[in-house]
Amino acid sequence: MIPLSWYLIAAAALFCIGLFGVLSRKNAVSILMSVELMLNAVNINLVAFWHYHTQLQGTSQIAPQVFVAMVFIVAAAEVAVGLALIISAYRRRETPVVDEMTLLKG
């Protein structure tokens, strides 16, 4: 069967790809997409640990499943609000570039 380490390494790599995207992309929508990558990497970890813990304990563990569901919910809420903010700022400034979004500057 598959070693646990493979999942952890794959998730760590996906998380780092997302981190690079968040730090380096100019477009706000790109940054949100990279955040999605990072959240997905966390979910892979949680589901892998759910499998491992269930295997050790013998019965299905509820807490990891609840955690995964929470990550899904928070990701959906974050995307909805984030995209609404981007559309609202785009309407004022005609730009999706983060560096040019200076509406809050005094």
Binding site: M1, I2, S5, H51, Y52
Partner: peptide
């Protein structure tokens, strides 16, 4: 446990 195997449940 890093090298632990995930067995089929």
């Amino acid at each position: 446990d890093f090298q632990g195997m995930l067995n089929e449940l």
